[in-house]
Amino acid sequence: MTKQTKTNAMRILDRNKVEYGAFQYLSDEENTDGTLVARMNERNTDLVHKTLVARNAKNELFVFIIPINKELDLKNAAKAAAQKKIEMLPHKELLKYTGYIKGGCSPIGMKKLYPTFLEQSSEQMGKVIVSGGKKGFILEISIENLLSTLKGQLKDLIKG
C-alpha cells in the first residue's frame, strides 16, 4: 500500500480536524491553468480560486483569495486590509515570505498567518478550490472552514 502524499496545507487541516477534499493532477506547464485542473478532477471550474500576496509600504503582507478568472482590484484590496496603498509581491519573493512558489501557493500553511481576505461573492458557492501548497495538488474546502482556519474575512476584492 502506498502512502498518500500530504502537503503542509493538508497536514494543518488534518491537525485541526478540518474537513476538505484533496485532488492531485499531473503538474506540467500545460496543466497549471486552474480551470483545466478543475475539469481534470471533475470539479466545478467556478470554485477555483487563486491566492495572491501583496504588501504595503512597510513590507507587511496580505493574502487575497479570488476566483481564478477575476482580477484583484488593488484599491479594493487596500481598503479591505485597511491600508492606504498595497502592491503585489513579486513572484521571486513569494518563496521567501510564504514558503510557497508560484503555481503552488496555498493560503493555508504559509510561513506566517498573514491577514487574509476572500472575495465576498465566493460566499454564495459554499466552498472553494485553492492550491494544495504544491504544484499538482488542489484542495476543496468550505468557505466556513477556510475562513476559520485562516482567521480570514470576506471582502469586495475584484474588479468590475
Rank of each mutant, 00 (worst) to 15 (best):
M1V: 14
K3A: 12
Q4N: 13
T7K: 09
M10V: 06
M10F: 00
M10H: 04
R11Q: 13
R11M: 15
L13H: 01
R15F: 10
R15A: 15
N16C: 13
N16M: 10
K17V: 08
E19L: 15
G21M: 03
A22Q: 07
A22H: 01
A22N: 02
F23V: 08
S27V: 03
E30T: 08
N31G: 04
N31V: 07
T32F: 12
G34F: 01
A38C: 14
N41A: 00
E42N: 14
E42H: 09
L47M: 07
L47G: 02
V48S: 06
H49W: 12
H49T: 15
K50Y: 05
T51R: 05
T51D: 10
L52Y: 07
V53K: 05
V53S: 00
R55T: 11
R55P: 01
A57R: 11
A57T: 15
K58P: 13
E60V: 13
L61C: 00
L61P: 01
F62H: 01
I65Y: 02
P67K: 06
P67H: 00
I68P: 03
I68Y: 09
N69Y: 12
N69M: 05
N69V: 12
K70S: 13
K70N: 15
E71A: 15
L74C: 05
A77G: 04
K79C: 11
K79N: 11
A80C: 02
A80W: 01
A81K: 05
A81S: 08
A82N: 11
I86V: 08
K92V: 11
E93W: 10
E93C: 12
L94V: 09
L95W: 10
Y97S: 10
I101F: 09
G104H: 07
C105R: 03
S106N: 03
S106Q: 02
I108L: 07
K111G: 05
F117Y: 05
L118A: 05
L118V: 12
L118S: 03
Q120W: 05
Q120F: 08
S121W: 12
S121N: 15
M125R: 11
V128A: 04
I129E: 07
I129W: 01
I129G: 01
V130R: 02
S131W: 02
S131M: 00
S131N: 04
G132N: 06
G133K: 03
G133Y: 03
K134G: 06
K134H: 09
K134F: 04
K135F: 10
G136W: 02
G136T: 04
G136D: 00
F137P: 02
E144L: 04
E144A: 03
N145F: 02
T149Y: 00
L150K: 00
L150M: 03
L150I: 04
K151V: 09
G152W: 05
G152F: 02
D156I: 04
L157S: 08
L157V: 06
K159A: 15
K159N: 14
G160M: 12
G160A: 11
